[in-house]
């Protein structure tokens, strides 16, 4: 295949990665931005979203579109409720101490994996795409569903942005992020905001998973890669910066595809990983973050 078509394919693949990654990373970024909590279990909320999508879709045999739509509603709600509960039961009791919450969320990561293994099993299970259209380009074919994933992610991202910037909920969240003590003094129920933000972050991960699962499959160990990638995106973008998160997701998604054009796959992964580490070393506040006060 010529260089041009190869590049087109790499960019398309990069966009799909970037689309779902930005949703997942946005969740992680919100939680860090507002609560100053690094949620290591974020990837497991993603995994739970996929597993629940599988369970819901299995309830609509022969009706993939209906099953998908139901999963799109049910999975984020269920995962959000779980996240809300774990915030109340664990994180709140730790007083949202940064290091203690890291350890606690590592524990939650393992517990959620164990729960998935116990109740869902160790198999990878496919979820049918709501529709299957193959788009034939002059050089290769491409999945119509993947293009839908890009579009759907953009819509969901826009909706999230609207909520954050144009509604009272968003205002309260931003106030809490800016200064939790002052917000409390002005009568904002900071603890409730925290629990809500933690749930919202998990819901975004679950949404991304519902979109991704017809492309890959549901598996109890699938949360690790999204976690790692989201971390990278959030850090590169600058902790707590939503705009940075989006740009970084695009950057990481696209570069992952393009770097793989020039090197053998594993070597490409090594180079991409080291590059991210070095960006952080020389610009620890990320590309868009402000230096620490």
């Amino acid at each position: 295949m010529g260089f041009g078509p190869h590049l087109v394919l790499a960019l398309l693949e990069g966009l799909v990665t970037a689309a779902t990654l930005s949703l997942t990373a946005l969740g992680l970024s919100l939680v860090f931005g507002v609560m100053r909590v690094v949620n290591v279990a974020h990837g497991e909320f993603f995994m739970l979203g996929a597993v629940i999508a599988w369970a819901v879709a299995a309830g609509f045999p022969g009706e993939p579109a209906l099953g998908f739509a139901a999963a799109l509603v049910a999975a984020p709600l269920a995962v959000g409720a779980l996240a809300y509960a774990s915030d109340r039961l664990v994180l709140k009791r730790l007083g949202y101490d940064p290091e203690a919450t890291i350890v606690a969320t590592i524990g939650m990561l393992y517990i959620l994996q164990q729960a998935a293994l116990t109740f869902y099993g160790a198999d990878a299970r496919p979820v049918p795409a709501p529709f299957s259209v193959r788009i034939q380009l002059p050089w290769f074919g491409y999945s119509g569903y993947k293009l839908f994933v890009i579009a759907a992610s953009i819509v969901l991202l826009a909706a999230t942005w609207l909520v954050l910037s144009r509604t009272r909920i968003g205002l309260i969240m931003r106030a809490t992020q800016y200064d939790a003590e002052t917000a409390q003094a002005f009568g904002i129920p900071v603890e409730k905001v925290y629990a809500g933000v933690f749930a919202l972050g998990a819901m975004l991960a679950a949404l991304a998973a519902v979109l991704v699962v017809p492309i890959s499959q549901a598996h109890y160990l699938m949360g690790r890669d999204p976690l790692l990638l989201s971390f990278i995106v959030v850090i590169i973008g600058g902790l707590g910066s939503l705009r940075g998160t989006l740009v970084a997701a695009l950057l990481i998604g696209l570069s992952d595809g393009v770097v793989s054009m020039f090197f053998s796959p594993t070597l490409a992964k090594i180079i991409a990983t080291l590059a991210v580490a070095l960006v952080l070393v020389f610009r620890p506040q990320g590309l868009f973050g402000k230096p620490a006060r």
Partner: peptide, 18 residues
């Protein structure tokens, strides 16, 4: 239940930190 190190380590971590 297929209890493995996952569940044991996870519960241990959460209880410890709490």
């Amino acid at each position: 239940w297929h209890l493995t190190y996952l569940g044991v380590v996870g519960v241990a971590l959460v209880l410890l930190i709490l």
